[in-house]
Design a protein around this nucleic acid. Structure first.
Lengths: 231, 231
DNA sequence: CGGGCTTGGTGATCTTGTCACCGAACTTCG
DNA sequence: CGAAGTTCGGTGACAAGATCACCAAGCCCG
């Protein structure tokens, strides 16, 4: 519509790619394929190295660490408009994953072949910035996860997770086991803590569903940090 | 000495850079400076963005997350022959650090200016592989830290740390507070656990020093995992 | 040498993790 | 439909770890 060729293609969804030179933009469009997958698809994981760099157009991908004994833990989520940097690193490092990526909703993504990725990295400063920024953000995410697991009280972290996962809707669809994986703790602990929230009238529960009856109270608990003033 | 120009320069210390084209190797040598710093130097941290990519030639750098209330936690260590990828990401992302890098010993490092780093990334496949491999390895390190903090017993993790930090010498120089930061726990917990090890005759303690009297026993505990057989 | 700081020890108490076990709700399939 | 198997959640008992409060010994430095 405008004179700028990028407007109107999927590339426009990625602010970091706005500066891309026109010929590289064309290359990206011509050589990448759009991939669609239903919720639940395992996009990559141990023994399933990625062929392509994924730029997520729609939906959400959960990246989690699977441990030996069925204990898994959620590391971070990739939202629409972001790239999956784990893929990036392993793409270039020829390294195997130790984490797993699962489509949490139906997704659409642009799949960029290795060769094109390599070409873009080598030719485009904005593309490099885009990729490295994504890296830096993920590392920061992981740092935060570590700090919270190590030092933050569980009730506060649970309240935060409920707010985060509800995304404004007053409801979270997750089993206690899944919530435990979100926070890196045990199912029983979640059951008890949710029981406490319920006793306070903050939430209602049904199988696989948590209803936030008093989001305000939950948010207030979530906002507390460390040893902040407790009246 | 040999006909290969790389041999004999500091670049030879980095196996990942062996494939570097001769002219890029020369560029790297010509434009980078050698930096020396005594143990304890803060190399980067919040409010101290790095000017250069650091390739560590000698010594060891500890990267730790500083939290609000003096609670800090060790994330990983950079050894000689490795690059400091946090620096890398933030260098290209123009992003601020949330972690801090401290020279744990006297160090020597090659400092590569932004412009040269950019040039190498864009021109050299081996250099890209080198950088992205380092990234992938750090991400894996962080995944492991998360898993261990979340799921591993503290006595086992403490034993592992003692073995790791002693590096064959039968002694670790660290205060209880520092050991607590290594494991993301509290000082009192370390004191009690070390007390237990001492009662068993595995270690001896003095101010700021832990002597491994029975490394075998400690290693045996360190080797246990999860809910492995316990006779 | 004496005051201030760092380091480490300890009991009391609370939170979190683990184990064992049970019952309710859902699913599958004859 | 109804029986059997599976998933999900609840709970008590106990162990491990975190937190708080406080103290004592060693160290540093004027």
């Amino acid at each position: 519509m405008t004179s700028h060729p990028i407007a109107g293609t999927w590339v426009a969804q990625f602010p970091g790619l706005a500066q891309l030179a026109p010929e590289l933009h064309d290359l990206l469009l011509a050589r990448s394929t759009i991939l669609a997958a239903p919720a639940g698809t395992v996009l990559f994981g141990p023994g399933k190295p990625p062929e392509h760099l994924l730029l997520l157009l729609e939906g959400r991908v959960r990246v989690q660490q699977m441990s030996d004994e069925g204990r898994d833990i959620v590391l971070y989520r990739v939202e629409a408009g972001e790239s999956c940097v784990m893929t990036t690193a392993c793409l270039l490092a020829h390294d195997d994953y130790s984490a797993q990526g699962i489509a949490e909703t139906d997704i659409r993504a642009a799949a960029i072949p290795r060769a094109v990725f390599d070409r873009l990295i080598s030719a485009s400063v904005p593309f490099r910035t885009f990729i490295f920024t994504a890296f830096a953000r993920r590392m920061s995410d992981l740092f935060m996860v570590i700090e919270e697991i190590a030092f933050q009280r569980l009730d506060i972290r649970l309240a935060q997770k409920l707010i985060e996962l509800s995304r404004g809707a007053g409801r979270v669809r997750a089993t206690h086991q899944q919530m435990a994986a979100e926070l890196g703790t045990a199912r029983e602990v979640i059951s008890r803590q949710l029981g406490e929230f319920q006793r306070r009238g903050w939430i209602g529960q049904a199988r696989g569903v948590i209803d936030l009856l008093d989001p305000g109270a939950i948010a207030r608990l979530a906002a507390q940090e460390g040893h902040g003033a407790r009246p």
